[in-house]
């Protein structure tokens, strides 16, 4: 087992035994990632902060249910995603698109429109914070049902099956949303990354 994971197992055991400092170390290790998940899904800083707090509170009170079958980080992400989805569902009465709405597989809509080459490392033309703003803006512009799937698969690196289970979707539905989401993102980034 890699040293950092061995250390993590020790920290989890200590936190379970009531060692608050050990839990704080785990929180500090992952809070940026969990905040990113929350922000990407909810799209609002205020909601993301609520999700961050709720997720770590739930993680602490449910530490005994963490069996170690998955990475601790994946377990945390699951909790955060559930919290974020609850927020999103609460606020969706005002939204035009439901998270659970089936996605019509209209090929015409998926066909790429912007077809221009980007070169090898288009992201290197931008400073770190500028690039981050571009990536966040493109992600936020996706509809929630695409954004959630792309975040879990391509930002948090969950498997298709894990994503399907978490979102209560079928594997084919996740694949359809992932493809559509990726193509939409590609198109939104095109104006920043195309050559020339």
């Amino acid at each position: 087992m890699p040293a950092h994971l061995e250390n993590e197992v020790t920290l989890i055991a200590a936190a379970r035994a009531g060692n608050g400092e050990a839990f704080t170390t785990l929180v500090n290790q992952y809070d940026r990632n969990i905040y990113r998940v929350a922000l990407n899904i909810t799209g609002k800083q205020e909601d993301a902060e609520d999700v961050l707090q709720e997720a770590f509170l739930k993680a602490y009170t449910n530490l005994d249910s963490f069996r170690g079958n998955s990475r601790f980080y994946t377990w945390l992400v699951r909790i955060a995603v559930n919290e974020a989805l609850m927020k999103l569902r609460k606020g969706r009465r005002d939204r035009s698109v439901s998270l659970d709405e089936p996605i019509a597989t209209d090929d015409g809509e998926s066909m790429p429109r912007e077809i221009e080459d980007w070169g090898d490392s288009p992201e290197q033309s931008y400073a770190k914070t500028e690039l981050q703003a571009i990536l966040n803006g493109a992600m936020e512009s996706l509809e929630p049902q695409f954004r959630t799937v792309v975040v879990l698969r391509d930002v948090e690196n969950l498997s298709t099956e894990e994503t399907a289970e978490l979102l209560g979707l079928s594997v084919p539905a996740v694949k359809t949303r992932l493809l559509r989401g990726r193509l939409k993102l590609r198109e939104r980034l095109n104006k920043y990354f195309k050559r020339g």
């Binding site: 809070d31 940026r32 980007w118 990536l135 992600m139 930002v155 690196n157 990726r182 590609r186």
Partner: peptide, 22 residues
């Protein structure tokens, strides 16, 4: 071009470190 740019889109998001917390 679509395949290359979609691959790059995924790589860019995959490789992005989370920013510091506000």
């Amino acid at each position: 071009v679509v395949v290359d740019t979609t691959r790059k889109t995924i790589e860019i998001y995959c490789n992005t470190e989370p920013m510091p917390l506000p």
